[in-house]
């Protein structure tokens, strides 16, 4: 074991892990964070806390992680390299670890253009791969990116994102290999609706033996409506929603669409469970956290292991 992370414990035990996500509120509302996290209690091994997701200002991921940690749960600190330079990021990592937060996700983040401050300076002192490298170096060598020694270095279990559907497709395996070279421990993917293409990506990963070096957790997002399916298909960069999925959602009456979305999510999990190299699931129910327990239960992933 590299860290005290519960997620690491579940993954190394060989059982399928489950994580979910909680987007912090757009204001100083700690109870909102508690409410969302409480819905996930007992159903997941880690709760990702997003960092100014879609480049919109929200309560900081670190603050929301602390609130969740104080509830006795296991937050996963998401960190984008868009908003802060290497000094700020490293000090937040130390701060997080000081509160017992031991799992994080290194991301580059959406461009500010998509958010509520398109006029903001775009930092990118590091990119996501370099952030992975930095956190690894903090953990293994006990030094800062700048080279100085850290007192009680943070032992973070290091995650990254992967999008099997972005272009160029031929680079998607190589890009994961690069993150592995940088020191990533687990990977959560973009929402998977195109299962065939995901399986093709996983094949490429297994062919190179990369599945032995990193734990891969496909992203699952239940769709609430046919409108959401269409929006994700046409509007979200790097998202691959096949026509059959949109058709299936549109094929049931409006009031039954949410149920259909949950069914699709459960069926996807059932199918992907058997794919070589899949070690768990990252269930992102965007502003729909209350549905996560049902998905976890119906997918046979409940109860979560006590480790």
């Amino acid at each position: 074991m590299k860290t005290e992370s519960v997620l690491e414990k579940v993954l190394t035990s060989g059982q399928l892990a489950v994580t979910s996500e909680c987007g912090p509120p757009r204001g100083a509302l700690p109870d909102k964070v508690r409410e969302k996290a409480a819905m996930l209690k007992g159903y997941v091994d880690g709760i990702n806390v997003t960092d100014n997701q879609t480049a919109m200002v929200r309560m900081s991921s670190l603050a929301a992680c602390i609130i969740i940690r104080e509830m006795g749960l296991d937050p996963i600190l998401q960190m984008v390299t868009r908003d802060r330079n290497r000094l700020a990021m490293q000090s937040d990592i130390i701060g997080a670890y000081a509160f017992g937060i031991n799992t994080m996700l290194c991301l580059s983040g959406d461009h500010p253009k998509f958010g509520d401050h398109p006029m903001a300076a775009n930092v990118y002192d590091l990119d996501s791969v370099q952030l992975i490298q930095t956190v690894k170096q903090m953990r293994e060598e006990g030094i800062f990116q700048g080279g100085d020694k850290i007192l009680n270095p943070p032992q973070m279990f290091i995650g990254a994102a992967a999008n099997p559907f972005a272009d160029p497709f031929e680079l998607r395996v190589a890009r994961l290999a690069k993150k592995i070279n940088a020191g990533v421990d687990f990977v959560q993917t973009q929402c998977i609706y195109n299962l065939d293409k995901f399986e093709k990506w996983m094949e490429g990963i297994c062919d190179r033996g990369l599945d032995k070096k990193v734990y891969i957790m496909p992203g699952i997002t239940p769709m609430k409506s046919a409108g959401m399916a269409r929006y994700m298909k046409n509007r979200v960069p790097g998202m691959d929603v096949p026509d059959e999925v949109v058709k299936r959602m549109a094929g049931v009456p409006k009031e039954k669409q949410a149920q259909e979305g949950v069914d699709i999510a459960v069926e996807s999990i059932e199918r992907l469970k058997n794919v070589k190299g899949v070690h768990g699931f990252h269930i992102m129910a965007i502003e729909w956290e209350q549905i996560v327990p049902e998905i976890v239960k119906r997918s046979g992933l409940y109860p979560r292991p006590e480790l």
């Binding site: 868009r82 580059s108 983040g109 959406d110 461009h111 253009k113 775009n122 990118y124 990119d127 996501s128 791969v129 370099q130 994102a161 992967a162 999008n163 972005a166 272009d167 160029p168 680079l171 890009r175 690069k178 940088a182 973009q190 960069p237 790097g238």
Partner: peptide, 28 residues
Amino acid sequence: SKRLLNGPCGGSTSGKCEISDDVECAWQ
């Protein structure tokens, strides 16, 4: 657009950058 030294990011689509169809993805 994000001056990534280890790109491309997950937003690269058909050779274009996630910020706009008018911008070529440097990493492509």
